[in-house]
């Protein structure tokens, strides 16, 4: 799959933003006034900024509101609804904390549940696709939720929880890679099943339908980025998990925490780049490619 910057920015930053909002909704930390304002500002910057970035790849962003209508079948629509509802609920909750030092806890809990729902529905947009076997697995939503809550815990200063969740996310990520590497083969979709010509013999793409490229090849066949996949996996593991955990284990210092957050963000961006660049869509088979 083409690793579009808009989608990488969207999943990374809105994941972190909603992760932070989750902990704020639970009252961890129980900040009020200016402290609360700073926390909520960072969370909304991530969540709303990410959502806005995701509209950049739309052909008609001015019609985006229509995407809230098909919640019965569409995970993308459900995600839109969950995101908008959660941001509205948390705005009221955050407004109470910042302006009136008023803690409407049940509203915070509802908002935290909304954050979970938003992260989960985002991940299901990818996990639902049978056409991308690597994503079509329970580890996709598990990883999105763990990463989001882990990053949120890091941003909200819940360092013990952050260490545990980052450890869990790292382990889940390694599992997702190991199990995902063989999933295309296990899906049973091959050039033979794609063309239905397997009963005659082995199939080879002889001539593509056109001399140039096309939308499908640009969107679904991304071979270039896989070259350095192993190095990037190691780098993302170090930056996303090892460095932040090592920094958090020492004595607390605002600068070290900032470095831990920055390292984690770069690590997650690398993870998301790999998430798309390594995902192979079955349509590539029609072009003899993966």
């Amino acid at each position: 799959m083409h690793p579009a910057p808009s989608v990488i920015i969207f999943t990374t930053f809105s994941g972190l933003g909603f992760g932070l909002l989750f902990w704020l909704g639970l009252g961890m930390p129980a900040a009020t006034g200016w402290d609360a304002f700073v926390f909520f500002a960072i969370a909304y910057l991530g969540a709303v900024g990410g959502l806005l970035a995701s509209t950049f790849h739309l052909g008609h962003p001015e019609r985006a509101i229509k995407a809230l209508s098909q919640w019965k079948t569409s995970w993308l629509s459900r995600e839109g609804i969950a995101a908008v509802a959660t941001l509205l609920i948390m705005a009221v909750f955050g407004g109470g904390l910042v302006l009136f030092e008023m803690r409407l806890l049940p509203l915070g809990w509802l908002g935290a549940a909304g954050c979970l729902a938003t992260i989960f529905t985002t991940s299901m947009i990818y996990a639902q696709l049978k056409t991308v076997p690597r994503w079509n697995h329970w580890s996709t939503p598990a990883l999105f939720v763990a990463l989001s809550l882990g990053g949120g815990a890091l941003l909200s200063g819940n360092f013990e929880i952050a260490i545990l969740l980052l450890l869990a996310s790292g382990a889940l990520q390694i599992f997702a890679w190991m199990s995902g590497d063989g999933r295309f083969k296990a899906s049973g979709t091959t050039m033979e099943s794609a063309t239905g010509l397997g009963h005659i013999g082995s199939v080879r793409a002889f001539e593509p339908p056109h001399t140039g490229t096309n939308y499908l090849m640009r969107e679904f066949i991304h071979v270039v980025g896989r070259k350095h996949a192993m190095q990037l996996r190691v780098i993302s593991m170090l930056l996303g998990f090892v460095v932040p955990i090592a920094l958090l284990l020492g004595s607390f210092n605002h600068w070290l925490a900032l470095i831990a957050v920055a390292s984690h963000v770069v690590g997650v961006i690398t993870l998301r780049w790999l998430f798309f660049a390594q995902a192979e869509h079955v349509v590539g088979l029609y072009y003899g490619k993966r």
């Binding site: 052909g59 056409t131 794609a194 969107e219 679904f220 869509h281 029609y286």
Partner: peptide, 14 residues
């Protein structure tokens, strides 16, 4: 259509 492209992602046949 908002041109999000998700339907093309979901189609195995291109």
């Amino acid at each position: 259509c908002i041109g999000c492209g998700l339907c093309a992602w979901a189609c195995p046949y291109g």
